[in-house]
């Protein structure tokens, strides 16, 4: 078993708090950052809960991962430096897909939506995390890594490092990083786009650490300063109650299931993109983007005719 600490997120907590205090003071001084007390409280309570509730399912996550690794792995990749570096990159690659599924499959979105439910974008938003991750079972996406021969504890450690990296870029206090860094790494600018509800920014920049995955798979959208980001959800929440925040999309899925006419609809209510309905009465992000593109085209045509 590799000798890697499995609780680095616990130790990171004091640094998170210190960085939030720093962001508050610097951001308050130059006006780049806005906090709201109730929003901050909800985000931080969600963050605390996310370290408690999923732990109840830890046996299932750890058990199933170890079972796969012990019984079905193709290779034994050990825990040398090269393995650790490759594991970090591979974990980030699979994180990209977990995150992409988290936005495109409603069952995964029911957990991930919590992270997007604040209308603010600051370091406290980074800690607004789901309580129901193990129910969505996003962890199964990492399973090919165990079959390849990466020990689950290495993957868990790399996943934790990945999440720690992601903390710092949830801020408006940093505008742009050096060009070379923006080209390779995920940054505040790239991730602001990801948290935006502007139609042209929807479903973009899923990366954890390396933005190259988005560039490779066609989901990269650069931030456009002439189009300021509007944060939150397409339909924002009307409550700060953490329990309602944690469960709202699950409740919506169960409500939809009650109206499902057949098994296909039951499946699609859970597995189709968020917003899907049999009659198209709600909008998916694809529909919102298509409508926006149509409007832009109409505006452009009008301008052409005027000219």
């Amino acid at each position: 078993m590799p000798d890697l600490p499995q609780n680095i997120l616990d130790f990171a907590a004091p640094f998170f708090i210190a960085l939030i205090i720093l962001e508050m003071f610097l951001g308050r001084r130059n006006g780049s950052v806005v906090y709201d007390a109730k929003d901050t409280a909800t985000s931080l309570i969600m963050g605390l809960g996310s370290t408690i509730f999923p732990a109840l399912f830890g046996v299932i996550v750890v058990g199933s991962s170890l079972y796969l690794y012990e019984n079905f792995r193709l290779f034994d990749l050990g825990s040398g430096w090269l393995t650790l570096i490759v594991a970090f990159i591979m974990t980030d690659f699979f994180y990209y897909w977990i995150h992409r599924f988290g936005h495109r499959i409603r069952w995964f979105w029911a957990s991930h939506v919590i992270h997007h439910s604040s209308q603010h974008y600051n370091l406290s938003t980074a800690l607004r995390q789901t309580w129901t991750g193990p129910i969505s079972m996003g962890f199964v996406v990492y399973m090919p890594l165990y079959l390849l021969g990466f020990h689950p504890f290495i993957v868990f450690f790399m996943h934790a490092l990945n999440l720690i990296y992601q903390f710092w870029f949830h801020t408006e206090a940093i505008d742009k990083c050096p060009n070379w860094f923006e080209a390779i790494m995920n940054t505040p600018s790239h991730h602001r786009v990801h948290h935006s509800t502007n139609p042209e920014y929807l479903d973009a920049n899923y990366a954890g650490v390396f933005i190259v995955w988005d560039k490779l798979f066609g989901t990269f959208v650069p931030e456009d300063k002439s189009n300021p980001c509007r944060y939150g959800l397409v339909s924002n929440l009307g409550t700060f109650n953490p329990i309602r925040v944690a469960l709202h999309e699950w409740v919506a899925i169960f409500k939809d299931w009650r109206h499902a006419k057949n098994l296909k609809e039951v499946m699609l209510y859970a597995l189709a993109p968020p917003g899907w309905t049999p009659d198209g009465s709600r909008m998916t992000s694809d529909m919102i983007k298509a409508e926006w593109r149509e409007k832009q085209l109409a505006i452009a045509n009008e301008k052409k005719e005027e000219a």
Partner: peptide
């Protein structure tokens, strides 16, 4: 942090 947010950004 909540007290700081309330103090620095009074609603």
């Amino acid at each position: 942090l909540v007290v700081m947010a309330k103090y620095l950004w009074p609603s």
